[in-house]
């Protein structure tokens, strides 16, 4: 039969060679699917906050997998263990793979030490979406916020991530800002005092085991 020969069978999905990630589908196919995801979730909730939480959950699942996939394929099974490193990984590598471009900007919050923002003039998932008036500040970018949270959390940087519309002067459509607020322990890890302590420990004979666990935690 036609086409049959082209599909190889593997007993286990892990035996299958990992794709190079160059394959593409039409933006429409994605937009249709995403729209169905949003519409389905709308039937499952009573309010906007819940809807955003559900979209974020869906995104989280994507983010966790994207981290694993990219670290394995592109980074030789290594991943970032520093805060700025992982942020720029999200802003450039992850964004480029998922959305075909580096995010428009990555900024540090001016008021709070633990806040960072990734902004995008026209977030891919919001391309074909307009929010009805009665849905207030709802932003489908919650899905992308979930992806970001999934990546950060799985890499050991727990954070609260939210998506917000920010009006831009002279533009009809607002841009979307993904606000990342790291959990307290993330910033503590980078407290110079603790890092100094770590270096001391690393000098000790049992350092190997500890570096291992540190690498895992940080």
């Amino acid at each position: 039969m036609i086409g049959v020969g082209k599909i190889k069978q593997y007993s286990n999905v892990l035996d299958k060679p990992l794709s190079k990630g160059k394959q593409e589908v039409s933006l429409s196919a994605f937009a249709f699917l995403f729209s169905e995801l949003v519409q389905y979730n709308q039937t499952q909730v009573d309010n906007i906050a819940e809807l955003e939480r559900r979209l974020e959950d869906a995104g989280y699942a994507v983010g966790a997998r994207v981290l694993e996939l990219l670290c394995h394929r592109d980074k030789g099974n290594r991943r970032e263990t520093r805060l700025l490193g992982i942020l720029s990984f999200v802003h450039s590598t992850v964004w480029k793979v998922l959305f075909g471009k580096v995010a428009d900007s990555l900024e540090k919050g001016t008021e709070h030490e633990d806040e960072y923002m990734i902004s995008e003039k026209e977030l891919l998932v919001n391309r074909f979406i307009s929010i009805p008036k009665d849905m207030g500040t709802f932003n489908c970018g919650a899905f992308v916020a979930g992806i970001v949270r999934g990546v950060l959390d799985s890499a050991g940087f727990p954070a609260v991530v939210t998506a917000h519309f920010v009006p831009v002067e002279g533009q009809q459509r607002p841009r979307t800002t993904i606000l990342i607020k790291f959990a307290e322990e993330v910033l503590l890890t980078f407290n110079p005092f603790i890092i100094a302590n770590c270096i001391l420990i690393l000098d000790s004979p049992s350092a190997k085991g500890i570096t291992h666990s540190l690498g895992f935690m940080s």
Partner: peptide
């Protein structure tokens, strides 16, 4: 056509099915 990475599509579909 405007296109996107198939992995975004695949993983989003996976997330949908899981939900």
């Amino acid at each position: 056509m405007e296109r996107v990475n198939a992995e975004l599509f695949t993983l989003t579909y996976g997330a949908t099915v899981r939900q």
